Simulated assay, not measured.
Amino acid sequence: MTDYKSIFITGGGSGIGRAVAQRFSRGSWFVGLADIDEAGMAETGALLPEGTWSSHKLDVRDPEQWERALKDFHLACGGRIDALANNAGVPLGGMLHDLSIEEIDRTLDINLNGVIYGARAAYPYLKEAGPGSCLVNTCSAAGLYGQGGMTIYCASKFGVRAITESLDIEWAGDGIRVTDVMPSYIDTPLLRHSSHAKSNKPIRESVKSAGLEFTPVEEVAETFWRAVHGSKLHNPIGKTAQLVARAARWMPGYIRSKSRKLVDRGDKLMG
């Protein structure tokens, strides 16, 4: 069995996944990149030292692909998977009545079912590597308090938060730590797209018009590193996420009123 640690990262072809791969590579971990975008994985791999990573084409919506990808990575990394970064996700904004069934199903399949399938498939490997192995899920500030114009996205991220809390309890006896990171707005390629099919406005413009800040993707990657090595269950990232976390706990009336005003003037939050 290998004497170095390894991490399997979904959504490793760009954005947060790429930054997390670079951070763990700097920490001398062997990195497994998983994505449907093979060209993106190759670009990420070119940023990592030779011989310290492997790539695995994976649609997180398919449980059988999960089984194959993790089996292949287990061989590639030398027989030990210390962490899974359940990171793959898609954004979706817009009023519920404006969303198509296809958009709703795709978002829930990737953001929620993909996390469930990944956790289930990774469990025996993490148990084998424990104690001290870790499942880290990409949640969101949208998993802290529901927002208008984000019903389905919030539902998916509330679900990820629930998965994290439930498995933290369920897997404690197996020596597996479970945690999540909760970014607010990260300036990644995902924000170049519109929030949903009926909108032509890029998500980035909506974030700017709402007066919200972008958190550097490097800060998110550093939080992943701390989450895997630390003891916190939830890890909000950035001013917006930290504000929402405090307000949801201590001032729910304030965040409810603030969110309604944002929707009234047409600014949709997207975490």
Score class of each variant (00 low, 15 high):
V181S: 02
L262T: 07
L167C: 06
I169A: 11
F158P: 03
K208W: 01
T179I: 12
Y117V: 01
L233Y: 06
S259Q: 14
I101V: 10
T164G: 03
P236Y: 11
K57H: 11
I101R: 10
K258V: 10
S195T: 05
A121I: 02
N86M: 01
P49L: 09
I176Y: 02
E67F: 01
T52H: 13
S14C: 09
G32W: 06
G89R: 00
D267Q: 13
S55A: 15
G93T: 08
R120P: 00
G11T: 01
D105L: 12
I169L: 13
T10Y: 00
N137V: 09
W53N: 04
E50D: 13
G45D: 02
S133Q: 04
G118S: 10
C77D: 07
E165H: 08
L144W: 03
A248F: 04
Y123K: 14
G114E: 00
A221D: 01
D105W: 03
W29L: 07
T240Q: 14
P63S: 08
H229L: 14
R226H: 10
V207D: 11
E128W: 02
A121E: 03
T240C: 05
A172E: 14
I9N: 03
A155V: 05
G51C: 08
R161A: 14
R161P: 03
R226W: 07
A141S: 15
G266K: 06
S166N: 11
E205G: 05
Y254D: 11
F8A: 07
Q65T: 00
W225Y: 14
V181E: 06
S55C: 08
R256N: 12
G266S: 10
G238Y: 03
A245R: 06
A34T: 00
T188V: 01
H196F: 13
G173R: 05
L99Y: 09
L190M: 15
W171D: 08
R177W: 05
L269D: 11
N137D: 09
A210L: 11
T44R: 09
R177C: 07
R161K: 15
G51H: 05
V31N: 02
K232I: 03
W171E: 12
L58K: 10
A76H: 13
S133R: 02
